[in-house]
Design a protein around this nucleic acid. Sequence first.
DNA 1: CGTACACCCTGGCCGC
DNA 2: TGCGGCCAGGGTGTAC
Length: 286
Amino acid sequence: MPELPEVETVRRGLEPAMKGKTVAHVDVRRPDLRWPFPTRMAERLTGQKVLRLRRRSKYLLIDMESNETLIVHLGMSGRMLIHWPDAPDGHPEPEKHDHVVFDMEGGVRVVFNDPRRFGLMDMCQTAALDRHKLLAHIGPEPLGNGFDDTYLGAALLGRKTAIKTALLDQKLVAGLGNIYVCEALWRARISPFMRACDVPPAKIRDLVPVIREILVEAIEKGGSSLKDYRQTDGDLGYFQHQFAAYGREGKPCRAPDCKGKIVRAAQGGRSTFYCHICQNVLERDG
DNA sequence: CGTACACCCTGGCCGC
DNA sequence: TGCGGCCAGGGTGTAC
């Protein structure tokens, strides 16, 4: 599902289609996603040039020349499909879950498709983005300078919730979802069930570079599939990465010389994947 | 404030 | 084959 690396991949993929181009037409094909679309969204975007595309956490930020920013969240199943103008049969007819169609000057079409409609869009003054309800309380970017072991140690202090749950908290660190949290804990050999405040300082020091490595690797792999971005299936390879833990229930642990198997357990209503040997999970409490 | 959990939504999959 | 039930899960809202 779209976590930080996937959103970053989408951002990079959209740049050649949108950056520096003027929005010629916007077709809003249903009234709402998770929330109603911003008022007069189509009118506010039409005729405006896209200055740049940014990302904050899992949010895609599209800055317009009008000093407004379009905020896009892909939710669970959201995609941005690009239809280039040189396609032999022109643009295909919109499909059932194509909710917003952006026609750019020059003929490129960008389609927001989201079957489950957990995605959302909003607009706000670019200068006021930091104060926007969705962005104001998000923690530091894991690939930025604000995320280091000093910060993480302080953030986990006194938190009794499981480290798995804590890392999913966007106020603690931005952009991590279920997949990359499972992968990071596996790689750092930390039990997902351990209370956040009980994670030893040495493990916290391990966790910071591990999280960075995993995200960077995932972005690089997403980037390598960008050449396929023109394909109408729009698949960015969300599940093409080689995960070590996520989704590998019952399969052998990939750690060298480890004879363990990946286990799946419910934690906070969602699946956690881990190796009970590497991650030293005894019962259910780390 | 921290913590826990229900809820939103659809498509895919599994078992009967 | 058809159908019910469950699962995926990010973020919000509510309750304790």
